[in-house]
Nucleic acid binder design. Sequence first.
RNA 1: GGCCCGGUAGUCUAGUUGGCCAAGGACGUCGCCCUCUCAAGGCGAAGAUCACGGGUUCGAAUCCCGUCCGGGCUACCA
Length: 472
Amino acid sequence: MTVRTRIEPAPSGSIHVGNARTALFSWAFARHHGGKFILRVADTDAKRVNEENYQAVLEDFRWLGLDWDEGPEVGGARGPYRQSERFDIYREYAGKLLERGSAYHCYLTDDEIDVERKSADSAKRPPNFRSTEADEKRYADEGRPFTVRVIVPRDRTITFHDEVLGDISTDMGRTPDFVIMRSDGTPTYMLAVTVDDALMEITHIIRGNDLMASTPRQLLIREALGFTEAPVFAHLPMIVTEDGKPLSKRWGDVSVRSYRESGFLADALVNYLALLGWSLDDKTNIISRDELVKNFSLERVGKNPAAFDVDKLEWVNGHYIRTSDPKDLIEAMVDVCVRHGIPAADGDEGRRILAEIAPLLTERMKRLTETPSMVRFLFEDVTPDEKAAATIEGQGDYLAVVAGTLEGVEPWTGPAIEAALRALAEAREMKPKKAFQPIRAAVTGTLVSPPLFESLEILGKERTLERIRRAA
RNA sequence: GGCCCGGUAGUCUAGUUGGCCAAGGACGUCGCCCUCUCAAGGCGAAGAUCACGGGUUCGAAUCCCGUCCGGGCUACCA
């Protein structure tokens, strides 16, 4: 049996990191078993879908490096893979459910449903959304709109095995009949997901724990439809905030896109996400995609919710910034510089400068977005910020001497510059920090920059002297 | 309310069949070292009555029961 897993994102913009984690686990599981990873777009609700959001979802997966074997753009034998293009299929299966007496037309209006729900609730009985046969006929003749609801067998207890949580059984006694076709003729998630998982022969359904409670209903549909081979289920613990609340926009960044834009590397996000709800052993924190694929198993997925810790993500990100391929890193830096108003970074000269300064930056960065403020002085003239100006204040004479000293430095290299400036500081009995900060302030316009001497080397003798003289 | 799930330090976790755990690793925090800033790096420290209360057992974080707390579902969202 070939393992087939899938991810089913709703195209409502850049994907949520929780979905990214689910996708990662599904992908890793498929790859581990030499199976197929399928991307299926859950766009049954026309109200929430547009082309831009759809593209954003695909872009997220591409960026994360989660390649899919079947799905949009790559096709596959069991497509189409956008649910909006599969409505005929869902209608057909809804029809089967109706024929077999497993579902019925529900003609109740929203208000009527509301009333029935309330009275059912106070009577502690399941609501009844079904009209009498005579009424049904009359409503049909009137052309009254209807939804299709699946009949829930109230005497049943549905049991299934979950690879993460163990055996789950649910008493269906109070579960209301649920809608599978909206009154506009489109299917709901419940129908679409069930039919597609069956038709696409998904063997392992790996998804968030928020969907666990929907499993019994999906099993009911499968059963009624005669899909006898049940897939393996694995419900992943939720990703939450530090106080156990669901990740919401109010809390902070929740989309893959926002992490990408705020300076995180795809490898780092993937690595960090792999650690939320899964672990290799008692000490591994850094794990590559390959190692993840090689070692991933549902057995090692935890049961309890995991808090998203941006601090740890930053630490992981710092590691990847320090170890990733310089070429890729430069491109990422160019991108972030351009986005932060340093267009000059994009170009051969810009890349050359970044390549020179990069080794000095990588060992002190947690996020790529720290780049612009650290390299800006190399691309444009600077005006000292408030603190830098305060440091320069009253150092005119000293800076003039510094300029004179640097004038004679030859060749213009970091070590030579350092030797000259240290000698000067010593001669004037100045502490290194006292001696170097004014120079940093004059040249970079800030009090925080890459290492000074190398920075001066890269800036060039001419521009260095010019800036120091101007500050003096 | 009903159905279902979860509960090891601030956080992620290790702890597969009870003893090697008076609980290991990592992030974060604090201190020291290094040091031209910021970091990185090195060393060290604090931090968990394993949610709580009962059992079972020679022995429990690991098994059983109860309680509490948290979360999900209960939509013509997914």
